[in-house]
Structure formats: C-alpha cells, structure tokens
Amino acid sequence: MPQQLNYLKETASQTAGPYVHIGLIPAMAGFDIFEKNFSNVLVTPNTKGERITLEGKVLDGTGTPLRDVLLEIWQANAAGRYNHPADRSAGALDDEFRGWGRAGSDFDSGLVTFETIKPGAITDRTGRKCAPHVNLWIVARGINIGLNTRLYFSDEEAANAADPVLNLIEQPVRRKTLIATRSERAGKVVYAFTINLQGPEETVFFDV
C-alpha cells in the first residue's frame, strides 16, 4: 500500500436559492442592516478609465428573463491589472478600483446593470495579450453550481480575433455569445449583453 495523498475534497455547491438577496444584497430583499454594502457600482469619482454601463439579462430555456438571478463581475483596471497580489504585471494599480461588484436582476424586468470602467488588455503570464474582458459569475434558484463566463467588447474586434480564450471556442458562432454590444445612450456608453442558459444561442460557460 503506497502512502496516502490525503487531499481534502471541495465542499459541494448548492443553489443560492430565491432569497439570495437577503445575504448578499439585503436592500433588494427589502431591509437595511449593514453599515457598508456591496453594490453594482465599481467606480468612485476618482477611478481611472472610461465609464461604461454593462446592461443585460439572463434568459432561461423558454427565453424568459430570470428575475431572481445574481451576477458578480471581476475585472482588471483600465491599465489591465487586477487588484490582487498575484497579478504582478506591469500596469499600474488603481487604489480607487477594487474591480469587483455584484448585482441582482430587477424583480420585474430581469435587467442587470453594473457601473464600471472598461478594463485594459491583459498580458498573461506567458506574455500573450488577452482582449479586454470582464469575468462573470452567475447564481440563482435552479442553478446548482455557479456559472462562469466572460464578457468581451464589440469595439475590440482585432483584439477579440486574437484572444486565446475566444479562440478555444470551436464554433465561431458561439464566440459571439460572449460579446457585449457597445452603444451610446444620453452620452453614456452602454454595453448590452444577453446570457442564454439554453437553446441554439446558449452562452459559452467555462469550467475554470
């Protein structure tokens, strides 16, 4: 009998359930409890970078928007650097940008929004340039384990075409499921996205 490795096993995931707001966004559940709250606004007035709104919906297998879904985003700053000690790339850190936020969908429309900045291109550890992107994590009632995907930007065509992750997707038609579409509305830059949980346009989800 050889020596035993004795690794522990990861704790099993369970659905966040319909009342996830109580714990993670109590104001949406209808009460005020914490002195400090996390939100869908990632920027302060002093954050560096182009202000953008991410606006989207998550659709179920019938095309109906989820109205009880919670999304979190994690992204690099305008210089392409993550605010984390493991990122030792060259871009400057921005003290006014943590790079993380969470949002619940509107209980009527299912709309989810984030107020953030457009991230810079990231240089990975082998020196490759990666197209600017936002990492997305999705939980809800009926979702047994959080879904990981990414949002890329429609105005970054050249960078997207060279991105190593987008190019892992075999069918070009499926790459489009990760592209948020840029428009301007009342002087604000809005990137619109749709997450399809099922169907012919099912979003690409990652096993990270």
Binding site: D60, A140, G142, V165, I169, L197, Q198, F206
Partner: peptide
C-alpha cells in the same frame, strides 16, 4: 427549477 436553468452544452475547460 434546474430544468430550464441548466446549460446543455459542455462547459469549455479553461
């Protein structure tokens, strides 16, 4: 609730 909210394609390993 998982029936209409579960992806049906394989996850892409990254």
């Amino acid at each position: 609730s998982s029936v209409l909210r579960s992806p049906r394609q394989s996850l892409l390993s990254l």
